[in-house]
C-alpha cells in the first residue's frame, strides 16, 4: 500500500503486455491510414482542360456565342476574344440566359453579362477563362485556367 509515493516498478510481464498492445494499436492505426490513402486518386480521369473551339473566323468581333457542351460563352470584340465560364460559382449548375445576363436554375444566383454577381448566393463572379491560339491559329480555351476579368486575348 506504499505505492502512492513510490510507484512499484512495472513488472516485466505487464511491460511486455503493454508493448504488445501498443504495437498492435500502432499497426492497426497505420493500416487504417494506409487504406484511407487508396480512395484518393493519384491521377484524375479527365481529358485535357485545353479545348479547341474553332478558327477565329467563326468568332468575328462583335459577336457572342454560347458553347453548351463546353459550358462557356465566347465573347468576341475588337480587343480580342474572351471566354466566360457558365458553371455557377455557387454549387456548379450551368447558368442560363436571364433578362440582365445569367441566372442559375438551381438556387437563383444572378450574374451580369460580364459574369459579375448581382444577386443570389453565388460567392464569386463567373470566371473568365484563358484563351490561346494553337499553332494552326485555332482558338483554344483552358477551362481550368482563370484570367483576370475583362482580359481579351488579341487574336493574330
Amino acid at each position: 500500500m506504499s505505492g502512492r509515493l513510490e510507484p512499484k516498478p512495472l513488472p516485466r510481464r505487464d511491460y511486455l503486455g503493454l508493448l504488445g498492445l501498443g504495437s498492435a494499436g500502432i499497426a492497426i492505426f497505420g493500416s487504417l491510414l494506409g487504406m484511407a490513402r487508396l480512395p484518393k486518386p493519384r491521377v484524375l480521369p479527365e481529358a485535357s482542360s485545353v479545348v479547341r473551339i474553332g478558327p477565329p473566323l467563326e468568332f468575328p468581333p462583335g459577336t457572342t456565342r454560347t458553347l453548351p457542351e463546353l459550358k462557356i460563352r465566347v465573347i468576341s470584340t475588337e480587343k480580342g476574344v474572351a471566354a466566360l465560364s457558365l458553371i455557377c460559382t455557387h454549387l456548379g449548375c450551368i447558368v442560363g440566359e436571364g433578362e440582365k445576363g445569367f441566372v442559375c436554375p438551381c438556387h437563383g444566383s444572378r450574374f451580369d453579362p460580364e459574369g459579375r454577381v448581382i444577386g443570389g448566393p453565388a460567392p464569386r463572379n463567373l470566371p473568365w477563362l484563358a484563351v490561346s491560339q494553337a499553332a494552326d491559329g485555332t482558338l483554344c480555351v483552358d477551362t481550368a485556367a482563370e484570367t483576370p476579368a475583362g482580359h481579351f486575348y488579341p487574336v493574330v
Binding site: P41, L44, P45
Partner: peptide, 13 residues
C-alpha cells in the same frame, strides 16, 4: 469532394 467523386467533375468514378 475528390474523395466522394474521385474526379473533378461528376462521372463514372
Amino acid at each position: 469532394k475528390e474523395l466522394m467523386i474521385g474526379a473533378r467533375t461528376v462521372g463514372q468514378e
